[in-house]
């Protein structure tokens, strides 16, 4: 080593690194980026988020003979199973006129949230290799994963609309609000996934609890029965009816079914929950940005 390096080494040993770095215009790494810079870098990577999402959705059906046709077949089969079990075997149709429409919307929109959240929770832990080899804002992972679920939902929504029309529902202006309801739910799903992705990154055990939470949510969100009818409108009924997942199911139904008139209160709750989870979840996720990838 030459004298200059020896000199540098001595300064380093003397705890002079910060001054040395400043002298040479070096920036410290591994510190959490400022919120503004973080959002800007996410924005500049928005195209990447889209490409990851569509690739992920596409790759899912890529290994089969029927290929992308499964994007349509899969939701059709689900609808068939649920109609058979809850429409024919167990009759939970009390209090609902168009039970088929009610059930199919409930099942599809619930699956949208549950599969988004299940995949989003593993955003960091199942992409550790990626996190450990490339630089990018980590929030990009849950975002693209939930966006992939949205892409998967599109063919399912087509199936859903056709089924609902077949059951005799008229096409009304309120159908135009359905895409808006889907977007609001997607924003909520993304926010929820931010929270879970960080929690699971720090304690994987939560992944084992998540299926039970989701199953519980499924039975308490009015997926296949009317909360009003079975629980009533007391305190418990109201809590159940205005928790986020139930709100989004009601929202979707209010767009497509005559039975459920559009309700500003439900819209208010839907947008409110979405904003709360998206903003809160994003901040919560960002605050651990520098720690992802350790284990």
């Amino acid at each position: 080593m030459d004298d200059v390096s020896d000199d540098l080494a001595a300064r380093l040993a003397a705890g002079d690194a910060a001054a040395l770095a400043e002298e040479h215009g070096l920036a410290r790494i591994g510190s959490r980026p400022a919120l503004g810079a973080y959002i800007r870098s996410l924005w500049s990577r928005r195209y990447f988020i889209g490409v990851l999402a569509t690739s992920r959705a596409y790759a899912r059906n890529q290994n089969t003979y029927l290929g992308q046709l499964w994007a349509l077949l899969n939701p059709l089969l689900w609808a068939g199973v649920y109609l058979f079990v809850f429409g024919v075997l167990l009759d939970t149709s009390r209090g609902v006129d168009n039970f088929i429409g009610f059930l199919v919307i409930g099942v599809f929109m619930f699956r949208f949230t549950s599969s988004s959240v299940t995949a989003g929770a593993k955003a960091i832990t199942s992409n550790l290799a990626l996190v450990r080899s490339l630089h990018f804002p980590r929030a990009l992972l849950p975002m693209s994963i939930v966006l992939a679920e949205l892409a998967t939902l599109v063919p399912a929504v087509l199936v859903l609309c056709v089924i609902v029309l077949i059951t005799g529902e008229p096409l009304t202006w309120s159908w135009l609000l359905f895409p808006v309801a889907v977007i609001v739910q997607w924003v909520f799903n993304t926010g929820f996934s931010f929270i879970l992705a960080r929690l699971v990154a720090q304690a994987r055990d939560l992944l084992n609890v998540l299926p039970f939470v989701l199953r519980g949510l499924m039975y308490t969100s009015g997926v296949f029965f009317s909360i009003d009818h079975y629980v009533g409108t007391g305190v418990l009924g109201s809590v159940l009816a205005y928790q986020p997942v139930a709100v989004y199911l009601t929202l979707a139904r209010s767009c497509l079914l005559q039975d459920f008139p559009p309700d500003p209160l439900v819209w208010g709750f839907g947008v409110g929950w979405a904003l709360l989870f998206a903003v809160g979840g994003f901040l919560f996720f960002w605050r651990a940005e520098e720690k992802y990838g350790r284990d």
């Binding site: 690194a17 070096l26 920036a27 410290r28 790494i29 591994g30 490339l134 630089h135 992802y292 990838g293």
Partner: peptide, 13 residues
């Protein structure tokens, strides 16, 4: 900068 440090610092250009 791909693995969190448990101690020390890295400065880079």
């Amino acid at each position: 900068g791909l693995l969190p440090l448990s101690g020390g610092t890295v400065y880079i250009s």
